[in-house]
Design a protein around this nucleic acid. Structure first.
Lengths: 203, 203
DNA sequence: GTCTATATGGCGATAGAC
DNA sequence: GTCTATCGCCATATAGAC
């Protein structure tokens, strides 16, 4: 039983690496088994199908990331502080796991049916709290009454996630080295809060 | 010879649809052949390998999109008009081809080596012209001297492309119908120029 | 150029011994 | 629980007739 947990967990950890690196369609069960140092049959013993294994991995990764984001939203910071902290922490986090953004985008777009139940769990909770924060700023007369909190959220996520997802293209289009690309992206941790806060509060 | 062009072109058009819909790893040569109404062997007769066919498709699609963007940049509009026009045209264009953003992100991230030569062709030309436009505004004292034109470009592309790539997630997280999701995204055609121009010129 | 037939190998999944 | 062996299928790719 102890050993079971170890194996089952090692499978999940290894499967995560392989799925994130190669995507659902590109990943091979054999590759996961080899990397985990076990037999291919064991994957099926624990998870029965590739699809099961994938959704287990995806759900866990998605939960981790959403928890990161929501615990920040629920930390009782002001909207302004929230935006500052988010860009700093989130971009730093993604720079260390550079395949994550493209992975989420790819799989959610290619297999939306498979994953939609995972996404739906995160509807009300975090969004509601974020909307409340925006409402407070509206009532205090600090920001535009017409601002849709969902649009603000989309903007923040777009500006932080997309550039990292598309990093290989920028590198080639701008003719940059890896270090220069990293630098360009890292500098956004400071540029983005200034920009977003300016557009929020300055008009 | 005339017939050759027809077949070769039909293959490319069909392959584009299948590759964009299912990604490189998920696409099947048999599926492309069936959909094009030809035999599978013909695909190999014209393109020899799946990889060749894919890069031919990808290069063509990438060229079309970049041409759209660059012809706009070269249209002698002011930076301000450029931003307005871009958001309107580009978001409208992507809403009609909603798989395109995720397709580019997926493939560039999963197969960067395969595509890097395609990306490099678009370095200097369009970027240079855009930088010149930004420089003019700096010299006229209209925008911040420290603004990196590449960062501005990344912001514009992030705000317009990412939300469409991630549309299935937003739909589920916000609990929206298809029509509501479409509406949320379409409204950005007007919101984004206001926001970006405010952050550019208002401080 | 376009077809049929086939080579060759890898895939996810299962049976059954231990 | 973990292994070996194998099934049945489908993938890309090629040979060769027409």
């Amino acid at each position: 039983m102890v050993k079971t947990l170890q194996t089952e967990d090692r499978i999940l950890i290894t499967a995560r690496e392989v799925f994130i690196a190669e995507g659902y369609d590109g990943a091979r069960m054999q590759h996961i088994a080899d990397k985990a140092g076990i037999n291919k049959s064991l994957l099926h013993y624990y998870y029965r199908t590739k699809e099961n294994l994938f959704t287990a991995v995806f759900e866990r990764v998605f939960n981790e990331i959403m928890s990161r984001i929501f615990s920040l939203v629920e930390s009782e910071e002001s909207l302004e502080n929230l935006i500052r902290i988010f860009f700093r922490e989130h971009i730093g986090f993604l720079l260390e796991q550079p395949r994550l953004p493209a992975f989420f985008i790819s799989e959610s777009s290619l297999h939306p049916g498979l994953l939609s139940s995972v996404f739906k769990k995160f509807g009300t909770r975090g969004i509601k709290k974020f909307s409340d924060l925006v409402d407070m700023e509206k009532k205090a007369g600090k920001i535009d009454d017409n601002l849709d909190p969902r649009q603000l959220l989309i903007n923040i996520l777009s500006l932080s996630i997309f550039p990292i997802a598309i990093r290989p293209i920028f590198k080639d289009v701008f003719s940059l080295s890896d270090a220069e690309t990293e630098d360009l992206l890292r500098r956004r941790m400071e540029l983005l809060p200034v920009m977003v806060l300016a557009s929020l509060y300055n008009k």
